[in-house]
């Protein structure tokens, strides 16, 4: 491993809420912005999703002394909560910045068209042509994408309406997996359907031994039955799968808009105590805005 490759990945949560932004005093600790995560490794900057959290990331980037010039944005899918911040991402309006956007090619509509239509004048005052940055939109097709020292693997997730993509970032022996907007309960619980065993195996192989798994855990076990087929996972199911696959740290993500800070604190306390006391232990926590981990 080169010395560059041995340095750490820094993972910062800019938006952790699912579905819709939830401003207000009861959500200020875990945050109300929708999904956006920034992962840096030396000069390499990779952004996962462009929910409303990307607005604050953009503000920090333009205020920084060392403005990053080359950004890579990977979209899990194009549901609103994962792209709605893009028109407010200041570096996109800055000449001299390069932004490479990546997403699934299985949309039926081309990714570029979907992003452009979000900025149609009926929805937003300026069109995407106002972006002064050099933007390329890439529908991923190669198995893995190499960006600097970071290898990005991806896999389609079909158990979410319209589908989504999970990503794995690897540097040396460190792995970070981002797998949101997937209904694991429909794959892993109940009577397995024809396809479920294949999907389960794919998921397990993809996440296995990750140093950090950022995973959809929108519902409690009690809530899930009334939300079945809504495309999201329950916390007991995702945490059990993660534990079996030897995940070191599990960041529960895509918090339900109805879940207050108090409720997420209580869940953190219960699940944290449970998995910390197991042998070997797994660290589990609820992702919150403004938190940076070194992996």
């Amino acid at each position: 491993m080169t010395e560059l490759a041995s340095s750490k990945m820094y993972v910062t949560f800019w938006g952790t809420r699912g579905s819709i932004p939830t401003p207000g005093t009861s959500t200020e600790k875990y945050g109300g912005n929708t999904p956006c995560i920034c992962i840096t490794h030396n000069e390499t900057v990779i952004i996962l999703d462009a929910g409303t959290g990307i607005r604050n990331l953009g503000l920090e980037m333009v205020e920084s002394d060392q403005k990053p010039k080359q950004l890579h944005l990977f979209l899990s899918h194009t549901h609103w909560d994962h792209i709605q911040g893009l028109p407010f991402f200041l570096p996109a309006y800055s000449e001299g910045t390069h932004i490479a956007i990546y997403g699934s090619s299985k949309k039926g509509n081309f990714l570029a068209g979907i992003l452009q239509r979000q900025m149609d004048m009926n929805y937003f005052p300026v069109e995407m042509t106002a972006f002064k940055a050099d933007i390329t939109i890439n529908e991923i097709s190669d198995r893995a994408i190499q960006i600097g020292d970071v290898k990005v693997d991806w896999q389609e997730q079909i158990r979410h309406t319209g589908g989504s993509v999970r990503y794995k970032l690897t540097v040396g022996d460190k792995k970070v997996v981002y797998a949101t907007d997937i209904e694991l309960d429909s794959i892993f619980t109940g009577k397995p359907g024809k396809n479920d065993k294949v999907l389960a195996k794919e998921y397990e192989t993809f996440i296995k031994d990750a140093d950090l798994l950022i995973a959809d855990g929108q519902y409690t076990g009690e809530e899930y039955p009334s939300k079945a087929n809504w495309g999201h996972s329950s916390i007991p199911v995702v945490s059990e799968i993660a534990y079996k696959q030897n995940i070191k740290q599990l960041a529960v993500f895509h918090h339900d808009p109805l879940h207050s800070d108090n409720m997420l604190d209580q869940l953190s306390a219960a699940y944290g105590a449970k998995y910390h006391s197991m042998t070997p232990p797994m660290e589990i926590f609820w992702a919150r805005e403004g938190l940076t981990l070194a992996i």
Binding site: T12, S268, G290, L293
Partner: peptide, 13 residues
């Protein structure tokens, strides 16, 4: 560590 999570950086609440 903030609330038992090892952090590099964290906005405090």
């Amino acid at each position: 560590f903030v609330n038992n999570v090892r952090v590099s950086r964290c906005i405090l609440h």
